[in-house]
Design a protein around this nucleic acid. Structure first.
Lengths: 219, 219
DNA sequence: TTAAATTTTTAGATTAGTCTAAACTTTTTT
DNA sequence: AAAAAAGTTTAGACTAATCTAAAAATTTAA
């Protein structure tokens, strides 16, 4: 049996592992889940005992096959519930996170299978993040960060990397949501802010904001 | 903050209090939640400290106003989720309990409000148990146990008192489900079993089964 | 390539919830 | 109304998950 706390650690290690490819450090985990490095060390040992993680003292953690499977299953549930909340229960994309954090731990394979069907087998959550299939496979859409494409590129906003509610509220305020067509303008050399235009208007966004927007390029 | 475990105790005390009217005994709680009397004593003290229960040593427990409110809120969530599982996710009425036990602890007032609306403000769960409103009020339909009405009485099966999956599977097998019209036959003096007829056929049910069937009498 | 800084681990404590076994109340029986 | 039985509480111990403070290892910098 995997406890709720263990699931949260696995999920966190999975997410951190996605970015860096490398073994994940104790401190990185502690920061993400807002706890102390010493607590993380203890838990990581337990995960290793349960064959859910590979752990070498002072060298960080990676997930085993089984650990990865548990992690993606939690991520799958989280994202399916987010779709449910937005599509069926009138939640906004900046309101779903906290509730999905709870719902992702409900244990019932029938539940998640039926929920998936009920929602029409969605492939992405409201933030454009891909939903792992029941085997844990993630099919990432080919997308580009809005900063790395040449000026004049047109694309569809398909994903936002930061899902914090402050960021999502900023996007709401500026009418930036998944699915809109964006034309990328020029980068200001002074502060790397970026000019974009969409739905007839132009907007300058900070480099920090731009880093979090992924588009699918239109021909 | 009320913990998940405290919520389960409050719910249990509420259910046991419904039947007996009296203060609920430590042992009764222990048996229901499959734990030991000593554990119950500890927890009940904690509930009293938090002003969720009235507790006098050796005299049992009752809920305070606040405790009752928390308990009914959990019951409300449990029953709403049961409706969701049956109506939207193709669960059978004997499959919902375990999952609803988990879902009842999800904390989000928006979630439960929206779920209620999404389901069309149901008044009863799949077993015919009433769903408390958001204030904790329960409007029990006037119903009678099938054993206490005179021979020849006709009524609609509106509620089953036992929701265990063995019992529900027995009912499935015999085509006994909420909403059917039943005519009550005679009680066998030897073993108090009861003859009933519904949908054109007759069936003899044991006294134990009969005790769990509630009907609303037809004129 | 040592010294300093940073990161990680260990040791020992704490809290929530549980248990067993013994002690204490209450209830039932004689 | 005393003795026996049943029910309840207390005392002390255990586990999971967390923390602080100190010790150990690794990385960075001089």
């Amino acid at each position: 049996m995997v406890t709720l706390t263990e699931e949260n650690y696995l999920k966190t290690i999975f997410h951190l592992g996605q970015e860096g490819r490398e073994a994940v450090s104790t401190n990185a985990i502690a920061e993400k889940i807002d706890s102390k490095a010493s607590s993380v060390t203890d838990m990581v040992k337990k995960l290793a005992d349960k064959k859910l993680a590979h752990y070498v003292k002072y060298q960080g953690v990676t997930l085993t096959k089984q650990g990865r499977k548990t992690a993606t299953s939690v991520v799958r549930k989280h994202r399916l519930w987010e779709v449910f909340l937005v599509e069926k229960l009138n939640f906004k994309w900046d309101e779903v996170h906290e509730v999905a954090e709870q719902l992702e731990h409900i244990k019932s394979s029938k539940l998640i299978q039926e929920l998936d069907a009920f929602l029409g087998f969605p492939t992405h959550d409201p933030h454009g993040d891909p939903i792992p299939d029941s085997e844990g496979n993630l099919t990432q859409v080919v997308s580009y960060n809005i900063l790395e494409v040449p000026k004049g590129t047109r694309g569809i906003l398909v994903q936002v990397k930061d899902s914090s509610d402050v960021f999502l509220k900023y996007l709401n305020k500026n009418r930036l949501h998944i699915g809109i067509q964006i034309t990328v303008g020029s980068i200001e050399p002074f502060d790397q802010s970026l000019m974009i235009s969409f739905e007839g208007k132009s907007l300058t966004i900070s480099n920090t904001v731009a880093q979090n927007l992924l588009i699918q390029i239109l021909p």
